[in-house]
Design a protein around this nucleic acid. Structure first.
Length: 608
DNA sequence: GGGCCCGCAGGG
DNA sequence: CCCTGCGGGCCC
């Protein structure tokens, strides 16, 4: 029996992680497979784009029923059938709609190419809808379905109630539920689509084609991020962004419409997913590739990312509580830091969010798989979940003991959220009751009417006041003739100078200059003697100008290495100082002796 | 799984 | 120009 790759991308057949060029994604279920482990891999490159995995291509053979663990097999069959209809180029949209409807209602189908196949699907569909798409607790159509490894489906809320009662077995078959599933249930997005399609099909009026949801496959993906000469590290850790595919300016507010998507003419759809933040950026959903908030303090915030970076965040899907940025010590060249060490203020990006709150702008929201505590986060990658409005913001004492900026986001999108089985988008909803507001300070609420609001007549969310005028240009290199985007190539850095190499190798972690009276800690960090002494006298240091390096801030009365958390109190009793020559003519110190500095694999002084 | 490192992008 | 940042890869 052939096996796909598991959730971590490991081939379940050979137990290895296949490289990208050996990974095939099924066009129907999007599951990755290891090409070299397949009995009959596709022969032509072009075949790989339309490749269907063994599970999906033999979906009606009982021996090949495994769709993938944790999913409803029958729902998988249903989706596969629906997608086969979608992919049939010989059908018009109306014919497709009719076929879908027949499939889902079990009505008589027209002449078929495969009688056996269709007969099974027809007869099973009602059963599937009755059994598989019904929650065993509430006996209703599944709402935010979660699926146990034993293959049983429950509403998220029902499941959580069950777990809350201390139960740890499947309510249906009594098989043990893994601790991870119990503590962090994730919504089964495949089932969501199945339920939604069933509903659309039932409610669709004859003649009007129901809305078709788009499934994004890898082959539609754009050029990837790339690495410069300077960024020596492998892969995308230090990559430049690939081209931006949408023609909206970086300060565009709201959904990205089809007319700004010259590549596909679809716009960015709710539920679209990307491998990582760099790919997400390329489609304009959220531009910064590290920061969680996109925006300008004078203009407003266009988008946010929920990635589990801040402990105070609280996700309820249609609404969530977001934490502002800052309050963290980023010394030591860090980009993020789990620990908060000072209060957040309403400035910079936090102020940008506050502006969007006051004006009632729509804020795009992406959720990342890195948010482990939310049931609404995707299993992998980064997903666009539509626009939200910030209804209130305030400050509170955060979990880590410092003040944090807080924002109440409430969904206001015309497309349904990726986790809901609703066919419709959002309606205005009452604000949730937020307990922490009792102890909030600096609370801000919108006074006037919001710019982005629900129109009762048109039954949709829209700009009720003109959107803010863009102050920026569309992504660099967009050809005004055809709107095609030309990738911009970053200027690459020339050879690194000897001086820079020296600085890198022998610089003090505090002053960033070549060390004077160097001391290497047991944890292998290098400092000037004076800097280290001053560090523990409670002084703080700012970086040297012009080198693109970071400030190091040290805490008073803490005997930890300024570059890491190792306690060096004992070492400081008797630090060893190495010999260093006088400054040279260029002002750069000459290292003249060899010495061992202790610590594993650290930078050690060498003769030059 | 956690620590560490660093180029990049964008705000101000 | 300097500062900041809810990444991502690698090493342990």
């Amino acid at each position: 029996m052939e096996l796909p790759c598991d959730g971590a991308g490991i081939c379940m057949a050979c137990k290895n992680k296949p490289p990208d060029e050996e990974t095939l994604n099924c066009k129907t279920c999007a599951t990755p497979w290891h090409a070299t482990c397949l009995v009959s891999p596709p022969q032509e490159l072009s075949d790989t784009l339309q490749w269907e995995c063994p599970d999906c291509s033999m979906i009606n053979q009982p021996s090949a029923s495994a769709f993938s663990s944790g999913r409803s097999e029958e729902a998988g069959d249903l989706i596969a059938s629906i997608r086969r209809i979608e992919d049939d180029k010989s059908l018009t949209e109306q014919e497709k709609a009719k076929k879908r409807q027949e499939l889902l209602s079990g009505a008589a189908a027209g002449p078929s190419t495969s009688d056996c196949e269709e007969k099974k699907e027809k007869n099973d569909v009602l059963d599937i809808l009755d059994k598989e798409l019904t929650c065993s607790f509430c006996m209703q159509m599944l709402d935010r379905p979660v699926t146990t490894p034993c293959g049983h489906n429950f509403c998220l809320k029902c499941f959580q109630r069950w777990i809350g009662q201390g139960k740890r077995t499947c309510a249906f078959c009594r098989v043990q539920i893994p601790p991870k599933m119990a503590s962090q249930p994730r919504i089964n997005s495949t089932l969501v689509i199945a339920i939604r399609m069933a509903r659309m099909s039932r409610s669709s009026i004859a003649g009007g084609a129901p809305k078709v949801y788009h499934f994004v496959h890898n082959q539609n993906r754009p050029d990837k991020a790339y690495t410069t000469e300077r960024a020596k590290r492998a892969g995308k850790a230090n990559a430049c962004s690939g081209k931006i595919f949408v023609t909206v300016p970086p300060d565009h507010f709201g959904p990205i419409p089809a007319e700004n998507d010259p590549e596909r003419n679809m716009g960015v759809l709710v539920g679209e997913k990307w491998e990582d933040r760099l790919a997400c950026r390329q489609w304009g959903a959220h531009l910064p590739h590290v920061a969680g908030i996109a925006g300008q303090s004078t203009h407003g915030s266009q988008s946010v990312a929920l990635s589990g970076g801040y402990i105070d965040d609280e996700d309820h899907g249609e609404w969530f509580l977001y934490t502002g940025s800052g309050g963290r010590d980023l010394s030591g060249n860090k980009r993020t830091n789990k620990d908060q060490s000072f209060d957040q203020k309403f400035d910079k990006m936090n102020e940008a969010l506050r502006v969007s709150c006051l004006k009632g702008y729509p804020v795009r929201v992406v959720r990342s798989h890195k948010e482990k505590r939310s049931s609404y986060a995707p299993e992998t990658g980064v997903r666009y979940d539509g626009v939200y409005r910030i209804e209130k913001c305030w400050r509170k004492n955060g979990i880590q003991g410092f003040k944090v900026c807080r924002y109440l986001f409430v969904r206001c999108d015309n497309e349904p959220a990726p986790w809901t089985s609703d066919v419709q988008g959002d309606r205005p909803r009452p604000l949730p009751v937020i307990k922490e507001l009792k102890n909030a300070i600096d609370t801000t609420e919108r006074k006037g009417s919001p710019s982005w609001d629900y129109d009762e007549e048109k039954s949709c969310w829209m700009w009720k006041k003109p959107p803010p005028v863009s102050k920026k240009r569309v992504a660099d290199g967009v050809d005004p003739e055809d709107g095609k985007v030309i990738r911009t190539i970053k200027r690459q850095r020339q050879n690194v100078s000897v001086r820079e190499k020296l600085l890198k190798e022998f610089s003090c972690q505090i002053c960033r200059k070549v060390m004077v009276s160097p001391i290497t800690t047991p944890c292998a960090h290098n400092f000037c003697k004076a800097c280290l002494e001053a560090a523990f006298a409670g002084q703080s240091f700012t970086r040297q100008r012009g080198q693109g390096r970071r400030s190091l801030r040290v805490q008073k009365n803490v005997m930890k290495c300024p570059s890491c958390i190792i306690d060096i109190a004992e070492f400081l009793q008797n630090p060893q100082i190495f010999l260093v020559g006088e400054p040279g003519a260029d002002g750069c110190n000459r290292i003249t002796t060899t010495a061992s500095g202790g610590g594993k694999g650290g930078r050690k002084l060498r003769r030059v």
